[in-house]
């Protein structure tokens, strides 16, 4: 019994550490391939278009709704704790800039772009397209991972910044119509809580999240098992791993940034 449990644990650890080491190899390979020619500008741009342009409407749409909820909820809490809601704009804009915009954008990108990448690379893997690439002398990591990584880092940064601004704007509109704050009041309250460096930090968060998504997605895509259930299973695992990784990285970054406020 005991021995069996230990064996199982050991087996799990072996598999886990092997997966981690394979992931690290993929990251290292991607980094070195990124610096080696040929540079496929066209692929980078095409991926950037897919990541940034095509996700833009959905991201902005979602952060606007998130802004409304934030305003509603912070006004609820403010009224409860300090019996007035004059701080709502400041508090809400702080939450939006420091957490909400970056995390919501990243989670949406995980499901739209990340899941799509895993499904795409996984389908290529099980239909032997990746082997076909190798036969043609094309390095799969350079061909598939590098453009996606560059596009995702750039795209996620830009999207996070845009989402932050649009989200703030939506929050301002909501608080004007819903709680009666004039734009001037909103901006004054906002200025007390946040500064330009918060926008900068949001951009950094976006870039970090953007790097996680393609690496995790391609890793699971390359390891896809054959058959109809293989692609689905790989996609599921990739979405979950990316989401958890994003939350953990978010915590680490928030903690680090908090020493500079």
């Amino acid at each position: 019994m005991m021995v069996a449990a230990l064996e199982k644990l050991g087996g799990g650890l072996t598999v886990g550490s092997k997966a981690v080491s394979e992931f690290i190899v993929l990251v290292a390979e991607t980094m070195s391939e990124m610096l080696r020619p040929p540079f496929r500008w066209r692929d980078w741009l095409r991926q950037l278009h897919f990541v940034a342009n095509q996700s833009l409407p959905i991201v902005l749409f979602c952060v606007c709704f998130a802004a409304m909820v934030t305003i509603l909820e912070s006004s609820f809490h403010m009224k409860m704790v300090i019996q007035n809601d004059s701080m709502v704009p400041g508090f809400a804009s702080m939450l939006i800039l420091r957490e909400l915009a970056a995390v919501v954008t990243a989670l949406l990108l995980t499901s739209r772009v990340g899941a799509g990448m895993t499904a795409e690379v996984g389908t290529m893997k099980i239909t032997e397209q990746i082997e076909a690439l190798q036969m043609l002398g094309i390095r799969p990591v350079q061909f598939l991972v590098v453009p996606r990584l560059i596009a995702c880092v750039l795209g996620a940064t830009i999207l996070t910044l845009l989402a932050s601004l649009v989200c703030l704007w939506a929050a301002q509109l909501v608080s004007e119509f819903y709680l009666g704050f004039t734009p001037a009041l909103f901006l004054t309250a906002m200025r007390r809580f946040v500064s330009f460096q918060d926008l900068l930090f949001a951009g950094i968060k976006g870039a970090c999240f953007g790097a996680v998504i393609p690496l995790v997605s391609c890793y699971f895509g390359f390891r896809c098992q054959s058959g109809a259930e293989g692609v689905g299973a790989a996609t599921t695992r990739s979405v979950v791993t990316s989401s958890v990784a994003i939350i953990v990285i978010d915590f680490v970054l928030s903690f680090l940034f908090s020493f500079t406020y």
Binding site: I58, S111, R112, A115, G122, V231
Partner: peptide
């Protein structure tokens, strides 16, 4: 297999969007 992959991607995206809307 491709269809299954697409279904999963669509599920992930549309649930996220719908959850945000229903949250509001």
């Amino acid at each position: 297999a491709k269809g299954v992959g697409q279904a999963v991607v669509k599920t992930a995206v549309s649930t996220m969007v719908c959850i945000v809307i229903f949250d509001w």
